[in-house]
Every structure is written in C-alpha cells, then in structure tokens.
Design a protein around this nucleic acid. Structure first.
Lengths: 167, 167
DNA sequence: GTCAATGCAAACTCTTTGCAATCTG
DNA sequence: CAGATTGCAAAGAGTTTGCATTGAC
C-alpha cells in the first residue's frame, strides 16, 4: 500500500516548494496531511487521512483536515479522484459507454468509442486483479460554456454555486 | 438535454419488464423516478430527480426518491456515474495516470498506459467541447479479494461495511 | 509582532430510518 | 386481502463555519 520512499520524498519537496511559491505557511498539520495522502498508493478518504495524521499529531482536528485538503487542491498540490465534490449522479444507460464532463457547468454526456473499447487491459492491471468494466472519462469545457465567456455565463456560474454550497 | 423518445420508450419497457421479472411492484413513483433519470442525456443527481418527479407527482417525498434510486440500482436497472456511494478520495499523483478500482474492497491503484494515452479524443467528443484530461477507470476484483473467497474475506467485507453505513 | 492557521463546538446539509397509512398484484 | 411501498417526521452522518487562541514567518 505504501509508495517508494524516494517518490514520497520527491512529492514532499514539491509540496514544500509549492507552498513557498504560493506564499502559504508550512504548518506541521499541512505537512502531515499531505504526507498521509502522498505516502499511500491507494487513495485515502478524509476519515483515513484523519486517522493516519492523528497517530503523529494527536491534537489535529477533523475540520483542519477538511480545510487543508481542499486548500491543497485549490493550490494544485493534490487532486481528488473521480468526481471531486460533485454529488452522486444516476445513469439509465446500461450499455457500455464513456463520459464527457464539463468542468464549468458539470454537464455530462455519454459517448461511445470503438477505439477506446479496442484497447485491451494493460498487463500491469492484469497483475492487480480481474477487470470487469473499463470506462473513460474525458473532462474539459463544453461548447456552451466556452462560448459564454463574454456576457452571461450562466452555465459557468452554476459550478461556482455548487462549490459555494460546500466551501 | 432530452433523449430520443424511442430510446426512452425502450428504456421504460425494459424497466417495467425488469421489475416484473424481479417480482417487484410497479408504483407510479417508481415509474416517474425511473423516467426522470432515463429521459435526460445528462445524468441527474438526487435533487434534480426529485424536482422533476414532483412536477408530475407533487406528493412524492424525497426519501422515496432516495430509496427508489438505490433499489433500482440493486436491481441493475440504473447505475451511478463515477464512484457511486463511495466517499471523495485524494490523490497526490499529479502526473497523468489511470485507476484500477476493486469493487469488493474499494482499493484503488494507479497505472499508466501508453496505449490508452495514444487514443485520440473521438470526433463526437470534439463536438461537445474541448477536452482537457482523459482518465480511464478499470473496475474489477483485485487478486487479494478474489483469493479470499474461502476463509477470511476481510477485504471483501470492508465494502459491505461501507455500504451498510449508508443503506 | 502580525496575520494566517488551528481547534473547538455548534450549525448545516444531505441522507437514512421507524412507523402508521396506503396501494399494488 | 396480504404484504410491499409510501409519506412524514425525526434521527444520523458527514461536512462546514464562527471565533478565540496559537503559531509560522
């Protein structure tokens, strides 16, 4: 589950430089929270990060973990896996398909692609387990949002609202 | 945003058959909730489904929407987009990579694949918008979980726990 | 020393559950 | 008619926020 020590060191130095570059303070909490995410090959959730950090920093609070994770993401030093802060969405298309997601308005379209479907499961993955389903997600900006940069950008604003609700 | 009428009809009949086959009652709520998901090309979240259904069934309650969506998923008549009921997870690997996720224990491994990276963005998607990031997610069962079907299946059980927490 | 960052506790939102009334097959 | 399903209201999780205190630069 743990990552190679040299990779971790590399990540940590990039992190320290990243904070410095952004003029953000390097606190023990931030360092440990980052290390907790960076050291695992799996991708921890908030609770897991909290438990891990608390082993070394028993006084750390859960809300600091939340705040720190989101701000490191804003700084581009971490990312979320999958759909970030978005809500669960439902899909009635039970056939094989892929998704295009607009980062601005959150709209999500299905698409099919023989080219992607033809790629066979890499050997590295075969070693990890048996694959059942392969799904591609392409993220970008939809034509509607990129065309709205001038006057009303109602669709783009929709994203801000969604984030505001939680941050 | 809406799907072709014939596709919707087809989905609805498969849904009705699906319920019948499973010996589950067809209530107006279930039908409308399913239709609300099935009719949109985008993928609605709980709140959106609720608002849509309420237009035709003003007395529907939010908890029925939740219960119905999850049970339709259990019946295999709907699916969730992305990471279903799982929590947000964090990733310190800021380079381009893809994910293998174990459906049983939830473990998630990074992998790289030139083959996937070489596939160019399909034309259908270019029409939808500008692509920024392409990420492949392969779901399956990891070797650890598939090897544990006999005695202790601690890793597999971990998933049940996670689901129990919410259902 | 200054201003950002933290910890605490309370507030909020989203989601789930218990139970009586209702409706489907 | 019997048992599943619904609506209501209240409980439960997870997440966020306000504010006084602490700590990094």
């Amino acid at each position: 589950m743990e990552i190679a020590p040299e990779t971790l060191d590399e990540r940590v130095s990039r992190f320290v430089e990243g904070l410095k570059g952004a003029g953000v303070k390097l606190t023990p909490q931030r360092l440990e929270i980052f290390r907790e995410v960076a050291k695992s090959a799996d991708h921890p959730d908030v609770e897991t990060v909290f438990r891990g950090v608390r082993k070394r920093l028993p006084s750390v609070s859960l809300d600091t973990v939340y705040r720190t994770l989101w701000s490191l993401i804003d700084l581009g030093l971490l990312s979320t896996v999958g759909h970030s802060r978005e809500r669960v969405r439902f899909d009635a298309n039970m056939g094989s398909h892929h998704h295009f997601v607009c980062e601005a308005c959150g709209v999500m379209w299905d698409f099919q692609s023989d080219e992607f479907d033809r790629v066979r499961v890499p050997d590295v993955v075969r070693k990890l387990g048996s694959a059942q389903k392969t799904q591609v997600e392409i993220r970008g900006i939809c034509t509607r949002c990129s065309g709205e940069t001038t006057s009303r950008r109602c669709a783009s604003r929709r994203k801000e609202d969604r984030w505001k609700r939680r941050s």
